[in-house]
Design a protein around this nucleic acid. Structure first.
Length: 941
RNA sequence: GGGCGAGUAGCUCAGUUGGUUAGAGCGCCUGCCUUACACGCAGGAUGUCGGGGGUUCGAGUCCCUCCUCGCCCACCA
């Protein structure tokens, strides 16, 4: 502890900004975030490892609320496990983010009037590298501001030499296992990024477009059977220039005569065959005839292959009309070089001019967009590298089915399974420059294709000259190795790999379930033979008050660093974690930060003030350990708060849940347990605020003001309970708890150390029974209620008369009376009233009367409700009676034919129990009547 | 078209295997600057649990049906 912090008086106001940066520095310097492989049980140590690999933010990213949420959750878990004695490793890092980063640099170049091609590959990569070195990783610095307790010594980067080696190893292994292959087919192509995309990267959206009906003239002898024209519908008329056939369903009677004939493709004036294809054509849709454009449509490609058709390319990589491979001169000069959307309009005009456009109608259809630049994706025929996914998916499916992996919230499991079952091969090659170059070499002489872990310069087969594949790998190809590549794989003897793989929990957003999570699981099995983690926690998205996802581009974002400087990192963390119900979205108001974050800030202030109270009233001198106190010296309030602490500890631990499955497989009971962060926070908050602060602190005041043994007991209990509270809360609000922890009285002069590594509280079984203090609380609450209800002014004291129960003879009730009497002074203090024992002159049956000091209130034993001036009703007692009667009736009903055995039961007037309209309608009354009615009807009376 | 989910207080959500008067936070109302805290204290109000039907002594919870939203996947041009 720094001397300054220890000696400082607690200022009236907690200054988060000043405290937090100093505390973080202290944490980092002390090395408490550092995980040690040799302490892991798997490496011969004696601690359970608990590992989270951080979803690596893009290296170009700056912190936004989504990161804030994601990392706050991870930090809560890591800090919890660290305190629980695990060897906790939170491994941070960044992703080189292929397309995203390349786009950033390309934009810079555009501003300079250049393209990447002007610069050349080598210079472009060099420029990107140095830019990343200069500005990249900002986000990792920013994560410190929100208190992320990462092991920064293990910071990883997907494009580092180590991880690049892992990428090559993975690729070559898959190649050798026959799971990577080169495919010639129609893939998703982004005409702006000039690269192919995986299915996942081409985002689907429903859009209103147009459906153009184009008439093709059928060439056949005059008078022959069948139609003169065939009309086909298309949403992309410009692609018709690449048509090679018209397909109809073989059973479609409309076209019986013309199959085998040809039709003339308008504009291009090419004759194309009319073919029959059962698979590719739905005769019930539209006219039942489809134009076939094999080079520009994935379905048509299949049809084309089946029928051995040519595949003319009429669109350039950047989406302009061209006469590409096999196109001959289909595209007329007037269209050449036009952008696809301009060409679309032109083609439509031309068709109209030659009267071959039947009609145009509005049409909603699916359109795919590039996930990085939002351009409309173009299907394009090309050669790409693919990963065969079916074999990889099998163990990933089995692991979930066997319970070795669980998803929280549960519902994502079905989504995951659904995707894996229908999984398709993964296009992993990108025509980009920024990324891991594909480790494939082609021999210029013999054509041999070689996959190699190291660079080669001659063909291993013929010794000829080789050249490396120019493409790079999908950025997610490095991401899916993250849980083990960051731990040293492919070096299987790596200490980290042995100590920390498999990891434990993966915390991320559902958006990247397919991109990343599913593939990591497949990768884990493919390369490590084991699941990468046993828990996948998918949290919600940060949204504004209109439920719109927060994003910088929409301008509805909140800068977490603004929040940190205004309210503190603790307030930020508290807000997001407390607001995070299982799977719930997190709603924040970008226009009213106060509204969103004040609750967190207020809670931090509350903690601070409890600390101030403790230090100014109990002092910082050492206190006795709880175990050194005589049990008899504890007051009812001591035992109560210690008991409540036990409960709170239990609730918090239960909310956080079992950290890992026993024996690697989740039991059905534990499968859905835990990671209920909002419940954890709420339990801890409720305990600290509503029980410790509202009751115990109030109750302990006079004892601290006194002296002697009881003061010492009070100090010890207060310090113990508050210390445990700080530890419970530390995962959520690490800074304030650290600040207060260091100032707390110790139990013997030994230094406390940092709360980061303090022990997570465990329940003390000694205080496991319900305390008599509840009776005191009920009495106080009832008195306060009456005071408010009868508008007794704050300044006016209330005299409460405590009397032995007039008719309650149960032991419990008499005990209650005794307790209330014994605690009379405490009740007086908490409820601000004066209590007198039942004295002569009062009338215990009818209640009593206004005294000189104000309203006279009668306390009965086992009190729940007090009615002044006219009656004394014990609701509990009445309810218990009614309930007993209901039970009895139920039993009677069960043994059919029973008669109503309870004369007077239905006659009892509930009137004098009535206090409000609501209670008048009270179910137990109503149900009693309903039940009685039923009994009567059953008995036939 | 396939898969999944949601509808409970003004808002965001809990509600475990059916069982006393359906809860929490925020918001709202009333009264209080009570010597840790007005970033606070005390008290209070608020629900046809989406509609309809059914099973049951008893349904927010189970079954059927309808309505309304949302998410994911998908090659009907």
């Amino acid at each position: 502890m720094t001397a300054t912090r220890e000696n400082a008086e607690l200022s009236p106001q907690y200054d988060a900004a000043a405290n937090e940066s100093a505390i973080y520095r202290e944490w980092e310097e002390s090395g408490v975030f550092r995980a040690h492989a040799d302490r892991s049980r798997r490496a011969g140590g004696d601690s359970e490892p608990f590992v989270i690999v951080m979803p690596p933010p893009n290296v170009t990213a700056v912190l936004h609320m989504g990161h804030g949420l994601n990392n706050a959750v991870q930090d809560v878990l890591i800090r919890w496990r660290r305190m629980s004695g695990d060897e906790a490793l939170w491994l941070p890092g960044t992703d080189h983010a292929g397309i995203a980063t390349q786009n950033v640099i390309e934009k810079q170049l555009v501003a300079e009037g250049q393209t990447r091609f002007d610069l050349g590959r080598e210079a472009f990569v060099a420029r990107t590298t140095s830019w990343v070195e200069e500005t990249g990783g900002t986000i990792l610095q920013q994560l410190r501001a929100i208190g992320a307790s990462c092991d920064w010594t293990r910071t990883a980067y997907t494009l580092s030499p180590e991880l690049s080696e892992a990428v090559r190893e993975a690729f070559v292994q898959l190649y050798e296992r026959g799971l990577v292959y080169r495919g010639h087919r129609v893939i998703h192509w982004c005409p702006r990024c000039l690269t192919s995309l995986s299915d996942e990267e081409a985002e689907h959206s429903e859009e209103l477009g147009k459906l153009y009906h184009v008439r093709y003239r059928v060439n056949k002898p005059t008078g022959a059977a069948g139609p003169e024209c065939i009309t086909v519908a298309t949403t992309r008329p410009e692609t018709m220039l690449g048509d090679v056939a018209i397909a109809v369903h073989p059973d479609d009677e409309r076209y019986q005569g013309v199959v085998g004939a040809t039709a003339t493709l308008p504009i291009a004036n090419v004759e194309i065959p009319i073919i029959a294809d059962a698979e590719g054509v739905d005769p019930t849709f539209g006219t039942g005839a489809v134009k076939i454009t094999p080079a520009h449509d994935a379905d048509d490609f299949d049809v084309g292959k089946r029928h051995n058709l040519p595949m003319p390319v009429i669109l350039s990589p950047d989406g302009r009309m061209e006469n590409g491979a096999d196109a001959d001169h289909r595209v007329p000069d007037s269209l050449l070089g036009l952008d696809r959307f301009v060409a679309r309009e032109r083609v439509v005009e031309m068709l109209r001019e030659i009267d071959q456009l039947d009609k145009v109608e509005p049409y909603t259809h699916g359109v795919r967009h590039c996930y990085r630049c939002d351009s409309v994706v173009e299907p394009r025929l090309s050669d790409q590298w693919f990963v065969k996914m079916k074999p990889l998916a099998e163990p990933a499916l089995a692991a979930v089915e066997e319970g070795r992996i669980r998803f929280l919230p549960e519902r994502w499991e079905a989504v995951y399974i659904n995707w894996l079952v229908g999984i398709r091969d993964w296009n992993i090659s990108r025509q980009l420059w920024w990324g891991h170059r594909i480790p494939i070499w082609y021999c210029d002489d013999c054509g041999e294709i070689t996959a190699s872990r190291t660079d080669i310069d001659k063909c291993p087969k013929c010794g000829g000259k080789v050249h490396q594949d120019p493409d790079v790998l999908d950025t997610w190809f490095s991401s899916w190795l993250w849980p083990f590549s960051t731990l040293g794989w492919p070096d299987k003897s790596s200490a980290d790999l042995r100590a920390f793989y498999p990891t434990d929990a993966l915390i991320t957003a559902p958006e990247i379930l397919f991109f990343w999570v599913s593939r990591m699981i497949m990768g884990g099995f493919a390369f490590m033979g084991e699941t990468p983690f046993h828990t996948v926690y998918l949290h919600g998205t940060v949204r504004d008050m209109q439920h719109v996802k927060m994003s910088k581009s929409l301008g509805n974002g909140i800068d977490p660093l603004d929040v940190v400087s205004l309210y503190g990192a603790d307030a930020l963390r508290y807000t997001v974690v407390a607001g995070l119900g299982m799977g719930a979205e997190l709603m924040l108001d970008p226009n009213d930060l106060e509204k969103s974050f004040a609750p967190g800030r207020n809670f931090v202030t509350k903690l601070w003030n409890i600390g101030r109270f403790l230090l100014s009233n109990a002092g910082s001198e050492p206190v006795k350990a709880l175990s050194d106190l005589h049990d008899a010296s504890l007051t009812r309030s001591d035992r109560w708060i210690l008991h409540r602490l036990n409960e709170a500890i239990g609730e918090c631990s239960a909310a956080l849940g079992p950290p890992r499955p026993r024996n690697g497989v989740w039991t059905p009971e534990e499968m859905r347990a835990g990671l209920r962060l909002s419940e954890f926070v709420e339990s801890a908050r409720k305990f600290v605020w509503n029980e410790l602060a509202d009751w115990y602190v109030e109750a302990v005041k006079p004892r601290l003001a006194g002296s002697g043994e009881d003061r010492e007991v009070a100090r010890a209990v207060l310090a113990e309970v508050f210390g445990a509270s700080l530890r419970l809360l530390h995962p959520v609000v690490p800074f304030i708890t650290e600040a207060l922890w260091s100032r707390l009285p110790t139990t013997g002069g030994t230094a406390r150390g940092l709360i980061v590594t303090a022990k997570w509280p465990t329940a003390n079984p000694i205080y496991s029974t319900e305390s008599e203090f509840e009776i005191v609380r009920e009495a106080v609450m009832a008195l306060r209620q009456l005071r408010a209800e009868y508008s007794i002014p704050p300044g006016q004291a209330v005299a409460a008369e405590l009397m032995p129960p007039a008719y309650a003879t149960a032991t419990k009730a008499t005990d209650a009376s005794r307790i209330l009497l014994e605690e009379a002074s405490l009740i007086q203090q908490l409820a601000r009233c004066e209590i007198t024992e039942n004295g002569p002159g009062s009338n215990s049956d009818t209640g009593t009367h206004a005294s000189g000091k104000g309203a006279m209130i009668i306390l009965t034993a086992g009190p729940r409700l007090f009615v002044p001036l006219g009656g004394v009703i014990d609701i509990d007692r009445e309810c218990a009676k009614a309930r007993a009667e209901l039970d009895k009736l139920a039993r009677q009903l069960e043994s059919l034919g029973a008669r109503l055995q309870n004369p007077g039961f239905t006659d009892r007037a509930p009137a004098d129990v009535v206090k409000s309209e609501k209670q008048k309608e009270h179910d137990w009354t109503r149900r009693r009547e309903q039940l009685a009615e039923k009994v009567r009807s059953l008995c036939g009376s």
